[in-house]
Amino acid sequence: MTVAHDPTRPAALAIPKEGYFERVEGPHGPLFPKTPANYGFSILGKVKPGREETIRAYAKTIEAAVAATPDVLAPLKLHYLRWLLFPIKGDLYFMYQGIFDTDFDKYMDDALSLFLSTGITTVFVNLEDFPEDWKDNRTAVIRFFREHQVPSFLEYAEYPYVSADEIKKALRMKAALTIALDQLQ
């Protein structure tokens, strides 16, 4: 049974510790549910010693890639992406938080294809336990993400279950309407 969601009414969802309500297997393991914020995951990994500046510089690489080709990350159907560096007991950790419109399996497939097709190296090479042969070993990459995922236990959205494409369409319609109304004045 499909539940109808009102995208104009905020929604929150408490998620069990396992990260899902009912275990449904996908090609790469259990599929996590779509929440009001859509799909997403958070990865926490220990940074290899001496790699902090490399990670920070890599953020500039992504910034430049998006500036040069605004739709370079479009295959990922991202809403938001957030990277954090923080110390835990003297070690440096990296957290990747992403919210997107596809399930985990599709996101992983699309992300690996994107990195391989663009030649952009993934930031995760700077983390301990990330497979050295990541370009040729999809299984090991997926295992890394599964093992380093920290599931959320609450997700909230002001405009729940709305895709990035729907948001962009609404913004284009708003811009067109604004232009039309400005021309009437």
Rank of each mutant, 00 (worst) to 15 (best):
M1Y: 10
M1L: 12
V3G: 09
D6G: 09
D6Q: 11
T8A: 13
R9K: 15
L13S: 05
K17V: 12
E18T: 14
E18C: 07
F21L: 07
R23L: 14
R23K: 15
V24F: 10
G29S: 04
L31E: 03
P33T: 05
K34M: 13
K34P: 02
N38W: 01
Y39C: 03
I43A: 02
L44N: 05
L44S: 07
G45M: 07
K48D: 05
P49D: 08
P49G: 05
R51P: 05
R51S: 14
E52C: 05
E53A: 15
T54S: 14
I55K: 08
I55A: 07
Y58T: 09
K60A: 15
T61M: 09
T61S: 06
I62L: 15
I62Y: 14
E63M: 12
V66Q: 03
T69P: 02
V72W: 07
A74R: 04
A74D: 14
L76G: 03
H79V: 01
Y80L: 01
Y80A: 00
Y80P: 00
R82I: 00
W83E: 13
F86D: 06
P87C: 04
M95G: 01
Y96T: 02
G98R: 00
G98K: 00
F100H: 15
D101N: 08
D101K: 01
T102M: 02
F104P: 02
F104C: 02
D105L: 00
D105K: 01
Y107C: 09
D110C: 03
D110M: 03
S113R: 14
S113H: 10
F115K: 09
T121P: 05
V123P: 11
V123F: 11
V123H: 08
F124H: 14
N126V: 07
P131M: 04
D136I: 11
D136G: 14
N137A: 12
N137S: 15
N137C: 13
I142M: 04
F145H: 05
E147C: 03
H148N: 11
Q149W: 03
V150T: 12
S152C: 04
L154S: 09
E155D: 13
E155A: 12
E155L: 12
Y156A: 10
Y156I: 15
E158H: 02
E158I: 03
Y159I: 10
V162Y: 00
A164F: 00
K169W: 04
A175N: 01
L177M: 13
T178Q: 04
A180Y: 04
L181K: 14
D182H: 08
Q183D: 13
Q185H: 08
